[in-house]
């Protein structure tokens, strides 16, 4: 192991890790928004909305994230969408993880005991009131863990944006492996930074879960 090399390249990787964090965080926000909309659409009474929600979830879960990024970034200009790599990365990753998160949210909502809804409706709550005041508060607890799993997958999946030349952790690793021919050392440095981010996310999810989900 060439530790001095690892030390020399470390600053570049810290900078790259910040890009990985940024892109994951922005994609997370976008993904949660899309997921909430898609889950609501799939649970709606209108068949049009249900069809739209189902199509989104099924298409984005049924095809590779890499292809989705390529369609957006390389194919986008053909239909008038010109995006910078970073923006394309955020939108591509966000739209992809949104489809998975929609299922986590929908699953949590469906997992709330039916008796809760029935009771709320019996005492005169409307559909919207029942959802907002009775079902969602209980579902929110149940979705912490699955959404946390999705978020960890998002952080690791963010490596894909290296293929559309966003200079994040994996892009930096690939460049240094190519120039130094020390794959193990470079992997070690990149892995360390990924582990720190993934571990921080996992601990945060654990904390939220302990705080809100254990009743």
């Amino acid at each position: 192991m060439d530790f001095s090399l690892m030390q020399r390249v470390f600053p570049f990787f810290v900078e790259a890790a910040l890009v990985t964090i940024q892109i994951s965080a922005l994609a997370l926000i976008l993904g949660l928004a899309m997921a909430a909309l898609a889950a609501a659409a799939k649970l709606s009474r209108s068949w049009v909305l249900r069809a739209v929600g189902t199509a989104y979830v099924s298409l984005f879960r049924g095809t590779p994230c890499l292809i989705q990024l390529f369609v957006l970034y390389f194919g986008g200009p053909q239909i008038g969408i010109n995006l910078e790599p970073f923006a394309a990365g955020v939108i591509g990753l966000g739209a992809n993880i949104g489809a998975y998160m929609a299922e986590s949210i929908r699953g949590a909502i469906l997992a709330v005991d039916k008796g809760q809804t029935e009771a709320a409706r019996t005492i005169g709550f409307g559909r919207a009131q029942t959802m907002r005041l009775v079902v969602l508060p209980q579902a929110a607890r149940l979705m912490i863990r699955p959404l946390g799993v999705n978020t960890v997958a998002l952080v690791k999946g963010s490596a894909l944006v290296s293929t559309i030349s966003v200079v994040e952790l994996t892009y930096t690793a690939q460049r240094f492996i190519g120039s130094t021919y020390k794959p193990f050392e470079i992997f070690g440095v990149a892995a360390l930074l990924y582990m720190i981010i993934v571990y921080a996310v996992a601990r945060t999810v654990d904390m939220l879960d302990r705080r809100y989900a254990q009743v």
Partner: peptide
Amino acid sequence: WLFMGTPLLLQLFLIYFGLVQ
């Protein structure tokens, strides 16, 4: 633990170049 905490893409680079190494 290492392979669950890092991206597949990074692992592919490690294996592809590491095997030659």
